[in-house]
């Protein structure tokens, strides 16, 4: 990720900034400049609360570059309370057998991936169980 890209996506990675269409009331994650539903550009930036539920997950044993040394890790699709879905790693799992569908999760703050020793560090959201498991 380039420095400018890292910088401009910060609000969505750090604070779950998204967009709400003031015309059709659709929510978007991340921030967008046009509503793909009603084509309106009357959108407002909102921060999602960061709580939601686990839709589906998998334990990744074969990671891509930047993730290859941290396997296994859990990758999940999360549905936020506002209704929007996103992809996130699932962390703070002490016992994999206790992960359940629909489990309440909240967003925590982590490094997204291993970075080189000299580049910028990419931070962002990852999900964790609301009730420790």
């Amino acid at each position: 990720m380039g420095v400018a890209q890292s910088w401009r996506t910060q609000s969505s990675r750090y604070r779950l900034a998204g967009s709400k269409c003031n015309e059709c009331k659709n929510y978007y994650f991340p921030v967008t400049v046009v509503c793909s539903n009603c084509e309106s550009d009357n959108l407002e930036v909102i921060n999602f609360k960061g709580t939601g539920k686990l839709v589906e997950w998998t334990r990744v044993d074969e990671g891509a570059s930047g993730f290859d040394h941290v396997v296994p890790y859990y990758f999940a699709i999360i549905q936020l309370d506002e209704g929007v879905r996103l992809s996130a790693q699932l962390v703070s799992v002490m016992d994999e057998s206790k992960i359940t569908d629909g489990m309440p999760v909240r967003m925590t703050f982590r490094k997204l991936m291993e970075s080189t020793r000299e580049g910028i560090i990419e931070y962002g959201f990852k999900a964790e169980p609301v009730n420790p498991i």
Partner: peptide, 9 residues
């Protein structure tokens, strides 16, 4: 950005 960076393969 929103899948691969989040650990998707």
């Amino acid at each position: 950005m929103w899948e691969t960076k989040m650990g998707a393969t």
